[in-house]
Write a protein that binds this DNA or RNA. Structure first.
Lengths: 364, 364
DNA sequence: CAAATTCTGGCAATCGTTTGCCATGGCGCA
DNA sequence: TGCGCCATGGCAAACGATTGCCAGAATTTG
């Protein structure tokens, strides 16, 4: 009698395990075992139970199970609000990929936006300490922390993605930004470019440090001085990529001696920058070569199609889930690992040899 | 003694309500009432309890509460996999907006991808029937249904978004697609255009029916025959917008008498189509005007900047959440409502009067 | 054929919170 | 000062599943 209270608007709440047991003519505990651990129950009994469950349309109550076993099967992904915008599909792809991997392993994905207010931090901490979340994937450099509670002490496995936080003790999944930018820059140098404009993300941001570092390494390897590259931007978030590109266009216009190649650290920046340059009469790649970052699908359809560094988001999502589930399974404190997923330079028509200064032999 | 079992690797599981009660010197039930329903408890006692809770870093266990009260505070959003791609930020914006509204009301957001396989349908049904989800926002035209369980019978409030499913009994939040397209088309007619190419989404899709309907209405209102518009596409999903645009470019090339204006039903289509047209030597908007759909931020930085119909996603998300919470609160069966959020035509330089056939007086 | 061993199924406690019901204490009013 | 009522706090029973422990059944071996 699961619904002996259907007198008034009481929620019917569906069939219970007890109903299945009664219909199958066995004890509740047998049903539980048959459903969770089929090996420990007679095959014929199990079949009978399965049939009864299907007939009743029985679905186990997740909260009751969770309460009893002391675990949930919900993973939360912590996304800073600043990630949403522009032309790249990184966030949707991350979500899609992570959710797919989690589903296959019987987990659910919960979204937790981390804004700059205490409310959202508290919300996330409640999820963590209240037993709702079993683990977290975080795309922010800041761990929520308020009133003495910190996500770091919640006892949850946490994996960082996009940002390397292995120093802070978090297993991290990142791309080889530095190397990718180094190679892209080297390619520009090989084409004959000697003066560069670098359009930066927020100053001090992990990605920006890595990417700019890659540029400098390439210059160094080619024997070019650090002064060969001019920085623009640094004051705005990646979220405002289009703005950054526009400001960079102004910066470019103000330069006495013009660079012949541009390295933009997001596709948004490249797109708005290129738009302004073309409005100003410049030809891409004739007058100016452009390389950018993110691998947004739309880059293939810009005029000219943009050379960009692809983020292998799908792989990253899978890797992050693998790391997290691993940490959940054997919850012994293992050392923080860093998984590097290789990004790929997609060569398109936005780069070419500079025309003004014809190709020279590489310096020494 | 919440942690009398800390002998081995047993999870500490944090302070319990009993610990708070002991520290505050009151009964457990008092703590519960103080936290949930502050009015029913002496102010001094409440303060003492609050202090004790804060001191211990107490967080109520969500699953225990959920089990007891028979409700969760998780809402799931059902996203067809086909929504992820292209240049538009509709999905991330929807998620951001919905999550924000839900958070403010004490709810959490869970992602549920609905692919074309039984696994994902079953997953969603388990969430619904297993008591994990309290309500659902669905962006798919198909309600998950398998083994006799259907989302429609799960007893959950459901709200449809983007698609009008009020016929199926679901409160729906949609934009005034038809009207918006009608106005955009009327604007093109006003500029002097008389022959149109319409680039379609999947045949029979709600959006496509509405949008094409809008075109026909505008033609009719201007006394133009239905033959004034040529359809392209219809066989691919919106997900493959770029592909559709490319095919449309081929279709355009094959036309004996060329349209002077193009109505694309997504920005992706417009972008790839325009790219091909320009490669073929056409000038936009000189030879061809283009209007598209979605209001992707990147449209502002295309060459030329694209005229597009903005989707007021933020408002839609808020409206969907409002509808859903309303349905949860007074769970009496109210009639399915349809909330229409107005979209806005963003005029940019991709449209102009046709040059080949100079502006004529409107027919009749 | 008897005894030992393995396997299957049932009982009941438990997870942490909420809440109906009752007892008690305080306060006001006459 | 005494009586009655209201507000406050405590007890214990749920919510729906899992699981350790034990009894009984089934199977095999000597």
């Amino acid at each position: 009698m699961s619904n002996n209270k259907d007198v008034l608007g009481e929620e019917p709440s569906g069939p219970l395990m007890a109903d299945v047991a009664r219909l199958a003519g066995v004890a509740i505990s047998t049903v539980s075992r048959a459903l969770a651990n089929p090996g420990r129950v007679n095959e014929k009994t199990r079949a009978k139970i399965d049939a009864a469950a299907k007939q009743l349309g029985y679905t186990p109550n997740a909260m009751a199970r969770g309460l009893r076993v002391g675990k949930s099967n919900t993973i939360m992904i912590i996304l800073p609000g600043s990630l949403y915008y522009g032309a790249s599909q990184v966030i949707p792809q991350v979500l899609q990929s992570i959710n797919k991997s989690l589903s296959q392993n019987g987990y659910n994905l919960m979204i937790a936006n981390l804004d700059r207010d205490e409310i959202s931090e508290r919300h996330i901490l409640d999820l963590a300490f209240g037993g709702t979340a079993r683990g977290a994937i975080i795309l922010s450099s800041k761990l929520p922390e308020v009133d003495g509670r910190s996500l770091a002490n919640a006892g949850l496995p946490i994996v960082s993605m996009l940002l390397d936080m292995s120093d802070a003790g978090l297993p991290s999944v990142v791309t080889n930004d530095r190397e990718a930018v180094r190679e892209a820059t080297a390619e520009l140098i090989r084409l004959g470019h000697r003066r560069f404009l670098y359009i930066a993300g927020p100053e001090g941001n992990y990605h920006d440090v890595e990417r700019y570092g890659g540029v400098l390494e390439a210059l160094d390897a080619a024997g070019l001085p650090e002064e060969a590259v001019v920085r623009s931007g640094g004051n705005l978030d990646y979220q405002q990529g289009f703005e950054i590109g526009i400001q960079a266009a102004d910066d470019f216009a103000a330069l006495a001696v013009k660079p012949t190649a541009v390295i933009a650290t997001s596709d948004d920046m490249a797109i708005s920058f290129m738009s302004r340059m073309q409005q100003g009469g410049l030809t891409i790649p004739g007058d100016l070569s452009i390389v950018s970052f993110d691998g947004s699908p739309v880059c293939a359809f810009c005029s000219p199609p943009l050379t960009t560094i692809e983020q292998p988001v799908e792989h990253m999502g899978q890797a992050a889930v693998a790391l997290l589930l691993d940490a959940i399974d054997r919850s012994g404190k293992e050392p923080a690992t860093r998984t590097v997923v290789r990004s790929r330079l997609i060569l398109r028509e936005s780069i070419a040899a500079p025309t003004a200064s014809p190709r020279k032999h590489t310096a020494r």
